[in-house]
Amino acid sequence: MTNNRDAKRTGLNDTAMARVLLKLRGQKLLTHLVLILFGLMMLYPLLWMISSSLKPEEIIFREQGLIPTSITFDNFVNGWNALRHPFSHYLFNSAVITAGAVVGNLLACSLAAYAFARLEFPFKKFWFAVMLGTIMLPLHVVLVPQYILFSELGWINTFYPLIVPKFLATDAFFIFLMVQFIRTLPRDLDEAALIDGAGHWRIFSRIIIPLSTPALATTAIFTFIWTWNDFLSQLIFLTNPDMHTVPVALRTFLDSSGDSSWGPMFAMSVIALGPIFGFFLAGQKYLVRGIATSGLK
């Protein structure tokens, strides 16, 4: 990144520089102020949820304010222990599925994406269209056939239906994502390598993959978040409560005919946000480690 301040520093006398700096700082302060205010507005629902998770359950809907009048951790304690297993059990199940899905998507989708982005083969356009087409059908109408398929395979109440398809690149979204990213990489890189005698596997693993860190990070983060939050397929394929995951467990707190445990639900929702937020925090530095920060400088 070019830095304005460094550029301006040379050839200015002290007072002029101070004035410029002051102006700059004012501008920056304003930027920050706007960004923070905007952030707070964006976060209001989340803050409300956190605040509610700390209120005694009976007063969550009776009390309007954002600041709790009395703080209790009962919802966390009760929520953690309310279900068949401690909540950690569901976090663990979700973590296993999510980890499998992330690895599967990274491997399978990047392979497919390389072929679509860099290689020539017959009917490429057709297959690309098919690939995009598979994203277009809503999940709900394939659910029953999928269930039959997986139950014929004996996969109901195992994690296979949620993990194996990822290793077979069924999330075409990410293939498309990586195709688009790879296509922003100048082709002379791999052509040079090709002339140097490198094979496609070498180009893929040594050039494209390292240069696609942002795309891979995006894939990893999105897969993580979507799998972590996915409800319907986990509900359908995992009916045994021992196999329940976080989204399914969270809904166990609710009953539309009344008697929902809103307090524990909010508390566990806050906890369930932890891993995805953590993963995002950890992963986001790779998001920006593109060409800009790699050896190409």
């Binding site: 309310a82 279900l83 068949r84 409560p241 166990t252 707190f253 609710l254 009953d255 008697d259 929902s260 445990s261 524990p264």
Partner: peptide
């Protein structure tokens, strides 16, 4: 179907 209490 039902909430955590019924399940328990």
């Amino acid at each position: 179907w039902g909430s955590d209490e019924r399940q328990r």
